[in-house]
Amino acid sequence: MAETIIDGKIIERVSEIARLRLSEIEKEKFEEEFERILKKFSIIDEIKVGEKELYYVVDNVNVLRKDSESKPFNNINGIKNNFNKIEDEYIIVPRNL
């Protein structure tokens, strides 16, 4: 199978999609590493695979719960205390300008 080419442009795109800023040094380092890591990983090409993608290793299906009255969470303050700002009982996080 054709090798995936890792270059600076791809690293840049990945870092944008991953929402993770990288310094120039990091970019260079990861570029070199990724190429090495993916090359190692490409031995999976040797394995004969079927079409089945195995997402779940246990066979649980149709797991539902009974419809019931909702139980209010008993430690709302515990949630609020993790945020710096509360206004009229609402959590305030940074604005999206």
């Binding site: 609402y90 959590i91 305030i92 996080v93 604005r95 999206n96």
Partner: peptide, 12 residues
């Protein structure tokens, strides 16, 4: 819901 302008999070 997250109100962008005020940064208010409504979890109701």
């Amino acid at each position: 819901r997250y109100e962008l302008r005020e940064g208010k999070v409504d979890l109701n």
